[in-house]
């Protein structure tokens, strides 16, 4: 896997979310990702960034344009030093929420992107990595 462009954004308050979404869109447009695939990726990113703000009061996102096996895509890595997720299987279930949301955030985000990886260490933090390819597969 080759990293072609890399950028890091700190997300500490709600107002950082819209510029972050725009940055993801910029990356998507640059590699020629279709509108539907851009929308899916940004929506997933929006869910994940909300979780980061809500449960870990912020964190940082690494945005990368990657190339692998002649496919181009975008990788987003969400890192926080929050309380972590104790039961990942439960958190990935539709309709489960410890907050008062719809509980679609994590499972929904996973459905929207091509690759989804969640690692969490209770008390240390959570890292979510998603990859979406230019052509959506």
């Amino acid at each position: 896997m080759i990293v072609m462009t890399k950028d890091t954004m700190e997300i500490v308050r709600e107002q950082d979310v819209v510029p972050f979404r725009n940055r993801v869109r910029e990356f998507g447009t640059r590699i020629g990702m279709s509108l539907v695939n851009q929308t899916k990726l940004i929506t997933a990113a929006s869910e994940l960034v909300r979780n980061m703000l809500k449960y870990a009061s912020g964190g940082r996102v690494i945005l990368e344009v990657i190339s692998h096996n002649a496919k181009t895509g975008i990788r987003l890595t969400f890192q926080d030093e929050g309380p972590g997720i104790a039961d990942i299987a439960m958190a990935m279930r539709d309709g489960f929420s410890t907050g008062r949301s719809l509980g679609l955030g994590l499972p929904g985000a996973k459905r929207l992107v091509n690759e989804f990886d969640l690692k969490s260490n209770p008390g240390v933090g959570t890292t979510v990595t998603v990859i979406h390819w230019k052509h959506g597969r």
Binding site: L35, V36, Q38, T39, K40, T43, E47, D94, L102, L104, P107, G108, R111, L112
Partner: peptide, 14 residues
């Protein structure tokens, strides 16, 4: 609603 938004919402489960 834009088509891309509609497709994404359905995939999201909403």
């Amino acid at each position: 609603m834009q088509p891309a938004v509609a497709i994404t919402l359905v995939e999201l489960g909403l």
